[in-house]
Nucleic acid binder design. Structure first.
Lengths: 343, 343
DNA sequence: TATTTATCTTTACGCGCGTAAATTTTTAAT
DNA sequence: ATTAAAAATTTACGCGCGTAAAGATAAATA
């Protein structure tokens, strides 16, 4: 390691006693050279501190080994966790990762895609903002770069979509709530940024009708991604104005529910299944913090790991085949009821 | 935009009627060329869809325009928020950003630094893991790359450190708690991953002594970064075993406090300042979720924006001067008491 | 051992751009 | 209008690597 500094592959090749093209071949795929030469190269690697210049590599390769990951809002631990799982899988497959957050801002989302374009990535895993996304711009990007959408679907964009089954999940928790108490009202944003919310709303209406219960949609104002704040402020209003027609509230997602729980607490409404409780509250997503609300939140979990695995696997297969999708596949994973004490 | 595709700067220069070296100069700094030529280039930019190849640029520049950001645990919204602020400031300064999380894992931290090395960044903003970090390896990195540490200090590493004033913050909340009720016990991990915790512990002991109150350290087991879980599990144990010598608990950080609040809720201990409350609980950090706990958490806030600004400003000044620090400056920002209803 | 096949070496070119030096053109100052 | 200064052009080289082609060498097969 204290030998004279190696400045480039030429010098390293000389130092290892192998020709540069063969060394280059080795770095592209160590398995592609003969066992004996691989050992000589690796011996030299231990002796000299050399690594190929990424910029020179990527300049000459038609396809880089970079994969972009774009999430709508990284400050949400839900997305941070999915991103972490995806990153690990991609790196394990010998690719590099660039993680970008759109911070809930459509302009930032476009900037992210622009940045990725200039990186010439092999592929991109994109969880779009949803309603706020610019479909034409996203489509243009997907046409240029193999892109797999996850978490949030925009119809017909990307090679494939991997997400959760909002209908099944909503049905399951609605059935549970109806079976064990009063039928739930549905607490949501009037104009949610994420299309999953619309699917959940529709699923709620359908399953309630199927079960023969009345529906009540409580659609509150508020824009952006500060869901806890919206759930808190509007929850307080809804409770104090006695707008709830039953004692059971199904929130469109856990972050709204977290805020709603705070509102319930502050207005003195005890939440839970017990006799002494005034409200039952349930959420949707199994947010990392849902275990630590007061009371812990009953919700529907989604398997981060499965979504991450399927997304990565799908993208890598497109990358490796070099082909584009003939038909756009959609994969939805079922949710699992997480029974805790809030409902 | 529908003109023939431009493949490189040569073609773009021809198309815009300007020589390539001048175009190159423009892309390095648009202000460095004459007004009239800038307009001609920008007119061409509107007409043709061209952007310089990043890899070719970075290969030839001695210094890239990349700045690395490394945080210990991105799934913690606290770090996600700081990172977001830092990113915006850096991008506004014309640099690029690479955001990496160590996921609480020392090996990952080293991998991140290795990755950054290969990117040849102009500089790095590093919030190290702390206790688990490999000081020698981090030092070696800091010797190679201008690095500014933030949030978590490792003595003598990096060009500078920007963080919060744990002593002032702890003193302030201790004084508040003592003034308004029983003196606090200090709830923390026995072996916290982050050195800020040690400073808070020491500050707690000192200020309590100064105020003439007894100290009680409740040091719980648990490793890693699942602070809520640790606060919850150990909080339950501490409460049920009646280990608290006063009714007031100061948690070493908000995430522990979030778990502790859940423990208090589940064990039926009402938390707050009222007559009917059994416990007061306070935290430290003003975590994004601390407003939405039940009850909302009294804590000490740190100004993300200030820390982000100072960190970026410091790093950029080193990058622009091209010099390294003669003496390592430490900047600490004071915390502000966030009085909520938990204490 | 001879032959086939896989692997390596040599040679050479190109990727897209930074950048330096010498020269010409444009602009600003006198 | 003259001169000096600023900016642009032309020319040329190099960065570190991918990669292709042709020939040489080693390994595997018969």
């Amino acid at each position: 390691m204290n030998d004279p500094k190696i400045r480039n592959m030429e010098e390293f090749a000389t130092a290892s006693g192998i020709s540069r093209p063969t060394v280059s071949k080795y770095f592209n795929d160590p398995q592609s050279v003969r066992e004996s030469t691989r050992q000589r190269i690796e011996a030299a690697l231990e002796q000299y501190d050399y690594r190929p210049n990424i910029y020179a590599i990527n300049q000459n390769r038609r396809l880089t080994k970079n994969i972009g990951i774009v999430v709508p809002y990284l400050a949400d631990p839900f997305f941070a966790e999915i991103a972490r799982n995806i990153e690990n899988l991609i790196i394990a497959s010998g690719f590099r990762t660039i993680l970008l957050s759109s911070h809930g801002d459509p302009k930032q989302e476009m900037d992210n895609l622009d940045l990725l374009r200039s990186i010439k990535p092999a592929g991109v895993l994109l969880a779009p903002l949803g309603r706020a996304s610019d479909p034409a711009a996203v489509k243009a990007f997907c046409d240029d770069v193999p892109t797999v959408l996850f978490d949030c679907n925009i119809s017909d964009l990307g090679e494939a979509f991997i997400g959760h089954n909002n209908v099944q999940a909503t049905e399951q928790i609605c059935e549970y709530l109806c079976r064990t108490g009063e039928p739930p009202v549905f607490f949501e944003m009037r104009t949610p940024p994420n299309p999953n919310a619309y699917r959940r709303r529709n699923a709620y209406c359908e399953v309630m009708e199927k079960l023969g219960y009345p529906t009540q949609l409580i659609q509150v104002d508020g824009e952006g991604w500060n869901f806890e704040e919206i759930g808190y402020v509007e929850g307080k209003r809804v409770i104090s104005q006695r707008l709830l027609t039953t004692n059971t509230v199904l929130c469109s997602n856990d972050r709204l529910a977290i805020g709603f729980l705070t509102a319930a607490y502050e207005t003195g409404q005890r939440v839970g299944r017990g006799e002494d409780c005034a409200l039952r509250v349930a959420g949707h997503d199994n947010h990392p913090y849902s275990r630590f609300t007061c009371p812990p939140l009953t919700t529907i979990s989604h398997d981060y790991v499965l979504i991450a695995e399927k997304s990565v696997e799908t993208l890598l297969s497109f990358i490796e085949s070099g082909e584009r999708a003939q038909s756009r596949e959609t994969t939805l994973f079922d949710g699992k009821l997480m029974m805790r004490s809030s409902a």
